[in-house]
Computed example of a mutant assay.
Amino acid sequence: MKTIHVLVVDDSAFMRKVITDFLSEHPQIKVIGTARNGKDALEKISSLRPDVVTLDVEMPVMNGLEALKQIMHEHPLPVVMLSSTTKEGAENTILAMQYGAIDFVTKPSGTISLDLHKVKEELIHKVILASRANLRTMEKQARIETTTSPLLQSYSKIELKPSRPISSTARQKKIVCIGTSTGGPRALQQVLTQLPKHIAAPIVIVQHMPKGFTKSLAQRLDSLSRIHVKEAEDGEVLQNGTAYIAPGGFHLLVARSGEALVARVEQSLPRNGHRPSVDVLFESVSDLSDYEKIAVIMTGMGSDGTAGLRKLKESGNTKAIAESEETAVVFGMPKAAIAANIVDHVTPLEKIAETMMKYVDGQGV
């Protein structure tokens, strides 16, 4: 079993000691150094070459976000952020995900958390998970382009002036459902920013994330995308051209209300440790017999989404897309779906929006 070498970065000597002690309890983890700010961290990374970095967001001299940007530019490697649960902390955490951080752990009670033991197991788990991330993908995605893509331009033109008659398949009602986890915020940005404003389907999304962070994620993606992106609210009618993200800590389901589809947000028991759960969302969508369903599973650890996708396929009229290993930061969730033989297309991240749109437009693939 390979030893995971970790660099701990925090401006508090107390927090550095606590985090180091927690991580060192695991036989697979060795803390090879600590740093007190971002500038110190960059120097230590160059000399120590850690496998994973834990990085505090709020630090003097060079804060966590600035350090992260430089790390991803100069020495791309897996970073787990430690953040506060404040509104500003949530916004900074989402930015960190977009800049390339693998995952994050929230400090239970602010900058210096005397009760950090509450998240000890989560921290250990996420450091181990981060060590398995696809470094080639991280290096390739070190700089994400958020400008209008050729794909978006091409579909905007098709939308305004169709190049061919609209097929009967295109007239059928569509819904897109997406499931993702570790590495997902960045993957969602890549996909959603490529979609045209008037996509003829609502999009429902489960991104594994705790309460207090999904609203900031939705706002960030909304500011970058042509489509509208928001956190789902219980009872709201789903609209074409809008993406609805499950609120952290809540399951998102889709239900009928007359001729309309509405979001249902509830707190039933977690499914396989997840709430929101991709399986729960996909299973609810499987009941929509008169809709064509386009289901997408992207980067993430574990197998959430596979059972729900199987139900979708059994319900008929479903096309399934899984992110390919070459681009997935963590290939667990897509791999499980592919292994179950229920995926129609295995697609690199940059082609997922294009594949989705061909089905939404009724052109097939």
Rank of each mutant, 00 (worst) to 15 (best):
K2Q: 13
H5P: 06
H5Q: 13
V8H: 00
D11N: 03
F14I: 13
V18G: 04
F22H: 10
L23A: 08
I29R: 01
K39V: 13
L42A: 10
L42W: 04
E43G: 11
I45P: 12
I45E: 11
S46D: 08
L48S: 05
V52E: 12
M59Y: 04
V61Y: 01
M62S: 00
A67Q: 13
I71Y: 05
H73T: 15
H75A: 15
P76I: 03
V80W: 06
M81T: 07
S84A: 14
K87D: 15
E91H: 06
L95A: 11
L95I: 00
L95G: 07
M97S: 09
M97W: 03
I102N: 15
I102T: 10
T106I: 00
P108E: 09
T111R: 12
S113A: 14
D115C: 10
K118V: 06
L129T: 15
A130E: 08
R132C: 08
T137Y: 08
K140A: 14
A142R: 14
S149Q: 05
Q153W: 00
E159M: 14
I166F: 00
C177I: 14
T182S: 13
G184D: 12
R186I: 01
L188K: 03
Q189T: 12
Q189L: 14
I199D: 06
A201Y: 00
Q207A: 03
H208D: 04
P210F: 01
G212M: 01
T214S: 01
T214C: 01
S223R: 07
H228S: 12
L238D: 10
H251E: 14
V254W: 00
A255E: 08
R256Q: 04
S257T: 08
V262W: 04
R271F: 14
N272L: 11
N272G: 11
R275P: 03
S277M: 05
D279R: 08
S289T: 08
E292W: 04
T306N: 02
L309P: 04
N317I: 12
A320I: 09
A322C: 14
E323V: 10
E325M: 08
T327P: 06
T327H: 03
F331W: 15
G332L: 09
M333L: 07
I338R: 06
I342N: 07
D344S: 13
T347K: 03
E350M: 12
E350I: 08
I352G: 03
A353Y: 04
A353L: 09
M356G: 06
Y359S: 07
V360F: 01
D361F: 06
Q363H: 07
G364D: 13
G364K: 11
